[in-house]
Simulated scan of single mutants.
Amino acid sequence: MSARTWLTVEEFCAELNIARSTFNDWRAKGRAPIVRKLPNGKLRLERADIKSWYDSLAEAA
C-alpha cells in the first residue's frame, strides 16, 4: 500500500506525535512545513513538502 500524498493537519500531527498547538506554534514561527489552504478553508500538507522540511532540519542540526 502506498502512502497518501496529502495529509490533513491532524494526520501530520498524529504521525509526528505532536499536539495541534505545537503545529500551530511552529507555523506561527515559520518553522512548519509548507501548508496549502483549500478553497473550503481546510489545510493540507504534501508528503514531498514534509520530506523537504524534515531534511532541512537535519541540515540545520
Rank of each mutant, 00 (worst) to 15 (best):
P33A: 11
L43Q: 14
A28C: 01
A32W: 03
F12M: 11
F12R: 05
S56W: 08
A3V: 01
G41K: 06
D55R: 15
D25E: 03
P39Y: 05
L16W: 15
C13R: 02
A48N: 04
A60K: 15
I34K: 15
A28F: 03
E10Y: 08
V9M: 05
K37Y: 10
L38D: 03
K29Y: 11
K51T: 00
N24S: 01
G30E: 13
C13Y: 04
I34T: 12
C13L: 03
L16M: 15
N40C: 12
S52I: 02
T5R: 15
W53M: 06
L16D: 07
L16G: 08
S21D: 07
L43K: 13
R31M: 14
V35M: 10
E11A: 04
W53Q: 06
I50D: 00
F12H: 09
D55L: 15
D55H: 12
A60N: 14
P33Y: 11
L38F: 03
A48L: 07
G41E: 08
S21N: 08
E11C: 00
R20F: 01
K42G: 05
L43T: 05
E15R: 12
N17T: 10
T5W: 13
F12I: 05
N40A: 13
A3R: 09
I34N: 08
V9R: 08
A48T: 09
K51I: 07
E15K: 09
A48M: 04
R20N: 05
A58I: 08
A3H: 04
L43E: 12
L16H: 14
C13V: 02
D25W: 04
D25M: 02
P39V: 01
E46H: 14
Y54P: 00
L45R: 01
M1I: 02
R47G: 02
W26N: 06
E11D: 04
L45D: 03
E15Y: 11
A32S: 09
S52G: 07
L38K: 12
P39E: 04
K51M: 01
C13K: 02
V35N: 07
R36W: 08
M1C: 02
E15A: 12
W6D: 00
V35I: 13
T22M: 13
K29E: 15
F23E: 08
A32L: 02
A19C: 00
A3Y: 05
S56F: 06
W53N: 06
E46T: 00
F12W: 15
E46N: 09
F12Y: 15
R44H: 10
T22K: 14
R44P: 07
G30A: 11
F23K: 06
K42A: 13
S21F: 03
E10T: 11
A19D: 00
R47A: 13
D49W: 04
A58E: 06
E59W: 03
R31I: 06
L7F: 14
S52R: 12
S56A: 13
V35F: 04
L57H: 06
E46Y: 11
Y54M: 15
W6L: 10
K29R: 15
F23T: 05
M1S: 09
N17R: 13
W6Q: 02
R44C: 08
Y54R: 15
A19I: 00
G30T: 10
F12K: 04
